[in-house]
Design a protein around this nucleic acid. Structure first.
Lengths: 203, 203
DNA sequence: ATGATAAATTAACACTGTTAATATATCAGA
DNA sequence: TCTGATATATTAACAGTGTTAATTTATCAT
């Protein structure tokens, strides 16, 4: 192995090391606690060193998001394959997301509440290849499956996808951000909402 | 008028002046741009002067929230009085919130996405008298109206209130925070969601 | 005019993400 | 092994945040 290759490999290893530390810090101490300086301290390097491996904070957060998106995609894929009832698949997908994010609030925060958004604009998200985009696309396909097979009302698929997305999104956002406002048990509300909405859109 | 009263009055006037400037800065330049230092500059005082009139940033934000909550409460009250159909009232209330917040994203942000929450914990919110609490209570009452009159399924009122709250909440949060992800027209989705959910919960 | 009180200010602290300039380590070729 | 180049890491700095303590300035009754 040439020296340039060895260098490249080492660089890749270090990138991973930083990413792992970042994910740990993120999950353990939370989004609010995360900072480049704290990450630097954790990996025993100066804060600026990180910038040699990741363009900036967003770049690092994006890498974390992509890791999780891979999980999402794989899971949705399985759900879709395992059942012949597209309505049941969609229900499971919705409950999967709510359950996952209820258990990983910080991950939810990076994903949806980073300013500016880690995935850029709506257009950039759709143009650039990413696991997050693939996840969105397969989710939309699951909604389309329901419409095509006549399980759901023939409403515009984009609208319906968006509408269903609101459920886990709103629920988690409410649970973790709007903690002042009275709330019932999140899991119960999730079940109720998913059931209610699927019933409401059935034709 | 005694001098102490004049002083007190002046103090109250100044509090208002700060509040007005704060609201302006907030609505115009947005939540992210708002800072105590910028507010101070706007009213031509030093940053620390504000602290003589408001305990801290949260205290100031709370005051803004209460102003808006008064609007909410009044509006919900009207809606409830004007119609005999509780289901229609609830529908209007939900659309009112979505519409209001779509037009006032920054207000939504203070309300639900301030860390720590301006209204404190769930318990503090329910114990302490506030316009926000009154708004929540009347909204819950509207949900109860629907259940009592048999318009909605007999599900726990807290759960149902929470579930309905998720709709405007999730929709706005998605629109303004998760701007990377593909979205259909927010107003269309709002209509679709409210209709769908009300249908799903009808008995 | 003096002394007390109220009001406003300056200085400071401990943070944040990020850049430019600088120092240190690594390694190929002479 | 010494030199020069390159890659890597560090320090110093900027402009910003909310907030507190100490200090100055203004107001007003005696």
């Amino acid at each position: 192995m040439g020296v340039t290759e060895k260098r490249a490999q080492h660089k890749e290893e270090f990138r991973r090391e930083i990413l792992d530390a970042a994910r740990d810090l993120f999950i353990k101490d939370g989004y609010e606690e995360f900072s480049m300086r704290k990450l630097a301290q954790k990996i025993d390097y100066s804060p600026t060193t990180i910038y040699l491996y990741y363009k900036n904070k967003d770049d690092l957060l994006l890498a974390i998001c992509e890791e999780f998106s891979e999980q999402f995609f794989t899971h949705l894929h399985q759900i879709r394959m395992l059942s012949n009832d597209p309505l049941e698949s969609l229900r499971q997908a919705l409950l999967y997301f709510t359950k996952f994010w209820l258990g990983n609030p910080n991950q939810f925060k990076v994903f949806f509440f980073t300013k500016p958004n880690v995935y850029g604009t709506k257009e950039e998200f759709m143009e650039k290849d990413s696991m997050a985009r693939d996840t969105y696309l397969i989710f939309r396909e699951m909604v389309r499956d329901c419409i095509k097979t006549g399980k759901l009302a023939d409403i515009d698929a984009e609208v319906l996808t968006h509408a269903f997305g609101v459920i886990p999104h709103g629920l988690i956002a409410m649970t973790f951000y709007s903690s002042s406002f009275p709330r019932a048990d999140s899991n119960v509300v999730a079940q109720t909402l998913v059931d209610g909405l699927l019933r409401g859109f059935q034709r």
